[in-house]
Design a protein around this nucleic acid. Structure first.
Length: 613
DNA sequence: TTAGGGTTAG
């Protein structure tokens, strides 16, 4: 083994065989460059040459393994040293605790900390930042406060690194007043400490205070860092403040921070959420180096702009690009685009991708599985939605609501109510969304009696005040069932403000049952509440059309022209083979038009209807 | 020899 190592190319980089000092220097470079291969060779060499009795070697090896994503090896070095003749000192404890924190493992970090205390090793200003982070990461507020006490006792409370960690810890627990007290008592403040406060205020939505911190930070002569910029951008994003967002964009240019990927990602997000979509896309395109956040943010931009096709195109580009694999965040952004477009094939592909990559298989992946279920539901595949639902170990109220809504949407009223009853059996309290689903299930399934009962139970039994959306479902339900007077009565007696949507539901019912008199009342209300909406004029003209009152049809059309209301032609589409097929009213442009209309004709025949087109 | 801060999802 020794002979093979000494002959290797690796050792030719040294002018003579490395001594302890050069081993440690090289271990540091292995850690910085994440070169595990080089680090392991040095480890072997040091073992053979008896260098591992030095505490410095142990610390350097622990650090190298921690930084090279080999935390278990780091812990092995730590544990085996305590049993050998090398006594563990504060450096070794600090290094392994830091290693666990670096690898986002607060629990084992805390176990080592307890061991360190039992061993009577005195903690120093290097121990505390990591231990503090371990307690806040593990969510142990009592332990965290005890350590804060020890910070005082050890006299390191004025150290900037310790102070920043404590402030961040309190902020993580949502204890702003305590964080502020620690911040105020610090004799010196650097940009990192200020950044902690900026982010703390951002988290609790106190945007003005966050911006005030930025002002004070600069007034005290600190230079905003890349981290300050991302923190402030997150504030402006939540505030929807495009004006100041653009000013920060200027600052980024001035400071030369464009090289920071996170800064650019924050700018993309800010422009996207502030609806300045082209600016967001521009930044993404000019970024020399992108990461998974860049892709996810810009995919989010397409979603926010309502460009669902753009979202799918970008997803394809990401796959073709091949540098970053879609993660949970990516698929949660792309799945709703499939739902909107009813793009079942794309949705299935993404679900398939998730299965092969093991995404969404964990118990707590409820959110992503909800998105998959919603996609199947909106694309009309309730069987698949039910399968996903059945396999989920943890279901939240959204999971149940999605199933109820899915069945309701496709007219499976009884199935929807069945899910609702099972939800109750599972002791989950229904919310507003649940009842929108339940009531639309009653409406689409013609379950009038049940729907009326649910509306009355909402407040008395579930303490949920019905909103205009709930009333709309019920009015739609009564209207579809031909109970127009009852629908009108409910609408007139509604204890909350009506809107154009609920009146339009009544209008649609008037069309269905040919009640021109009630339609007139409804249409007046709709036009009053939303004059620019074309749907109500069209419905009114259809009501007259069905009754053969063509003069009135022409009056409505004339009125529409006078009001400069334009009707956007409606269309439907279906995914088939490799493409999307779009159809407008009376559209005969499809290449398979003859075949399609002949099939349509035979379907009409089977349904006992005459072909009208 | 050892340490602290930022971005993404309905």
């Amino acid at each position: 083994m020794y002979k093979r190592i000494t002959k290797s190319h690796f050792f030719r980089t040294f002018s003579s065989l490395p001594n302890l000092t050069s081993c440690i220097t090289t271990l540091q470079s292995s850690a910085t460059n994440i070169n595990l291969h080089q680090g392991k060779k040095l480890h072997a060499y040091m073992l053979i040459n008896g260098f591992l009795t030095s505490p410095i070697s142990i610390t350097s090896l622990i650090n190298m393994y921690s930084k090279c994503n080999a935390i278990s090896d780091a812990f092995l070095v730590f544990s085996s040293s305590s049993t050998s003749n090398c006594e563990l000192n504060v450096f070794a404890y600090n290094a392994i605790i830091a290693g666990f924190i670096f690898n986002d493992m607060p629990k084992p970090a805390l176990r080592v900390y307890q061991r360190m205390r039992l061993a009577g090793v005195t903690m120093d200003k290097f121990t505390f930042p990591c231990v503090v982070k371990a307690f806040s990461g593990y969510g142990d507020v009592v332990g965290f406060k005890i350590v804060h006490g020890l910070v005082f006792k050890s006299g390191v409370d004025h150290d900037l690194f310790v102070g920043s960690a404590v402030v961040n810890g309190y902020l993580k627990f949502g204890l702003m007043a305590d964080a502020h007290k620690v911040f105020d008592e610090m004799p010196d403040r650097d940009v990192v400490l200020w950044n902690a406060m900026i982010n703390g205020y951002a988290q609790i939505g106190e945007f003005q205070n966050a911006l005030e911190c930025l002002r004070k930070l600069r007034a005290e002569g600190n230079v905003p860092s890349r981290f300050t910029v991302t923190g402030i951008l997150s504030v402006l994003t939540l505030k929807g403040d495009l004006h100041n967002g653009k000013a920060v964009h200027g600052l980024v240019t001035k400071m030369g921070y464009f090289s920071g990927i996170a800064v650019c990602n924050a700018l993309i997000d800010m422009y996207g959420k502030c609806k300045s979509f082209l600016d967001a896309l521009d930044i993404f395109e000019v970024m020399a180096i992108k990461d998974i956040y860049s892709w996810n943010s810009v995919i989010g931009v397409h979603q926010q702009s309502g460009d669902h096709e753009g979202t799918l195109k970008l997803f394809d580009r990401m796959l073709r690009d091949g540098v970053f694999r879609p993660d949970l965040v990516t698929v949660t952004t792309v799945l709703p685009a499939c739902s909107h477009l009813a793009a079942l094939r794309h949705g299935k592909e993404i679900h398939g991708y998730m299965i092969t990559k093991g995404l969404g298989k964990d118990d707590d992946d409820t959110y992503i599985n909800n998105a998959v279920m919603d996609m199947y539901g909106k694309c009309g595949s309730m069987r698949e939605a039910q399968l996903v639902f059945d396999h989920m170990t943890i279901k939240d109220s959204a999971s149940w609501n999605i199933m109820i809504m899915g069945y309701a949407m496709h007219g499976f009223g009884h199935e929807a109510l069945n899910v609702f009853h099972k939800m109750r059996e599972a002791n989950l309290m229904p919310d507003e969304v649940t009842f929108v689903g339940v009531l639309s299930a009653c409406s689409h399934g013609g379950l009038v009696k049940e729907g009326q009962e649910f509306l009355s139970q909402m407040e008395s039994r579930y303490e949920i005040a019905p909103t205009v959306e709930h009333y709309t479902c019920v009015i739609d339900m009564l209207g579809r069932a031909g109970l127009l007077e009852q629908a009108y009565g409910l609408l007139s007696e509604m204890p909350i403000k009506t809107n154009s949507v609920v009146w339009r539901a009544l209008l649609a019912a008037c069309h269905l049952h040919g009640d021109a008199n009630l339609a007139k009342i409804a249409v007046r209300k709709v036009i009053d509440l939303e004059p620019e909406h074309c749907g109500s004029y069209v419905l009114m003209s259809n009501v007259y059309g069905t009754m053969g009152r063509y003069e009135e049809v022409s009056d409505v059309r004339h009125n529409m022209r006078q009001q400069k209301v334009k009707k956007t032609p409606g269309c439907s589409w279906i995914e088939f083979g490799n493409g999307m097929h779009v159809f407008g009213t009376g559209d005969r442009t499809h290449p398979d038009e003859e075949l399609i209309y002949s099939k349509l004709g035979s379907l009409y025949m089977s349904m006992g209807l005459c072909q009208t087109t």
